[in-house]
Design a protein around this nucleic acid. Structure first.
Lengths: 209, 209
DNA sequence: TCACGTATCAAACAGGTGTTTTAATTGCTC
DNA sequence: GAGCAATTAAAACACCTGTTTGATACGTGA
């Protein structure tokens, strides 16, 4: 007889593994750590998810659905400047937000710099569409331009956002802390958007004939 | 009797380990890999450098001297816009340049997202001074401003640069390649500088009374 | 009640890691 | 050339990893 509040084994594993993968990465998280936190037997991961990679992919899939529901890119297509602000804000929440909804963003950021076997699939299913979205916004502002230039501008924006995740350990040492509260994240998103709109505008002016 | 072309054991270890640490990180590089590439006995690393961390620190120290000689931040202090361009170009070469001189930049980038025990020391001796340099340039452009705002602007610039290193595996999948030739790196540095100067100017105009 | 598929468990396995040990070898000085 | 310290070498050690095994308990339908 189980307590109703006690979730099943697979759920407990998914929960514990998600937290550990997010804070320590795939490599540095051991199955023993996961099972200890989930309060399940060591063999449970292999039984329910075949192997460690299977568990990781299950978490990636689950968290992808969660993040799209929690932080969607709801663009109007009418005002690209406003769309950029939405894009940046949602991306920042995906990277810096608290709790389960932001899990996928953090796993993606980790995957970018320390890829596992899951990166190829992740790239095509999640990263490329997001990148296309951003390039579309930029194109709506600057008009037609060489694909390479649009990619560079997109990189400038993505780089500003991802920096706060990728360089987190350094930022904490240099500045003491990292934005965590919702209003802090929103303020940062506005600052990055404003900065980027100026950069994009400068490109447009420089390259119009 | 040794061939003159055959360097000593410690030099061969430093050379092999530098390459491996740069491309695979500290964790994913094993002492056995290093010794195999350096053609030395397995025990040599522990004998000459006490342990794996000792070797890593020796490489960090050695490559720090090399990078300062190869890619110095030679700022005039007269024209902050020009100084920013120099700063960005040197930083990009440190991150994307070829061969030994760029080793330290790559190790630093890796250290930022996946810190080892060496990060604290590295932060104080290399990263913080570089950050102060950049903040100084920005302050020269916008005038006095809250420290937090200057830090945000610095983060926007550093983020754009580091993105090309931190997201390298993804960029290669999305765009096919990453800038490697000197003229490509310089062009990218000019683009980032131009973009950033516009962003900084926008901040200055928005916040002047 | 019995048998069967599912799930859990403790234990062991096979492979890799950083490090240490102990002996052999080298190179240099007296 | 003998003696001595520094270096190299092969082997083993202790630990951690993901995974598998075989036994046991559970629940369900015949």
């Amino acid at each position: 007889m189980e307590f109703q509040s006690q979730k099943g084994t697979t759920e407990r594993i998914l929960e514990a593994a998600g937290e550990l993968f997010a804070e320590s990465g795939f490599q540095d998280t051991s199955i023993r750590d996961i099972c200890a936190r989930a309060n399940v037997n060591l063999a449970a991961v292999n039984y329910h998810f075949r192997d460690k990679e299977g568990l990781y992919e299950a978490i990636l899939l689950q968290s992808f659905e969660q993040i799209q529901r929690a932080y969607p890119f709801e663009l109007t297509g009418e005002c690209p400047e406003k769309d950029l602000e939405v894009f940046v804000r949602m991306l920042m929440f995906r990277l810096l937000g608290k709790g389960r909804p932001a899990l996928h963003g953090k796993l993606m950021a980790a995957e970018m710099s320390s890829p596992t076997g899951a990166l190829d699939k992740l790239c095509e299913e999640a990263i490329r569409p997001t990148h296309e979205l951003l390039v579309g916004i930029i194109r709506a502002i600057v008009g037609e331009a060489p694909e390479n230039d649009l990619n560079d501008l997109a990189a400038s924006i993505l780089g500003q956002c991802l920096f706060y995740k990728h360089a987190q350990p350094v930022i904490i040492r240099l500045r003491g802390a990292i934005p965590v509260e919702d209003h802090e994240i929103e303020a940062l998103a506005r600052q990055i958007t404003s900065f980027s709109l100026a950069g994009i505008e400068k490109y447009r002016i420089t390259h119009e004939q």
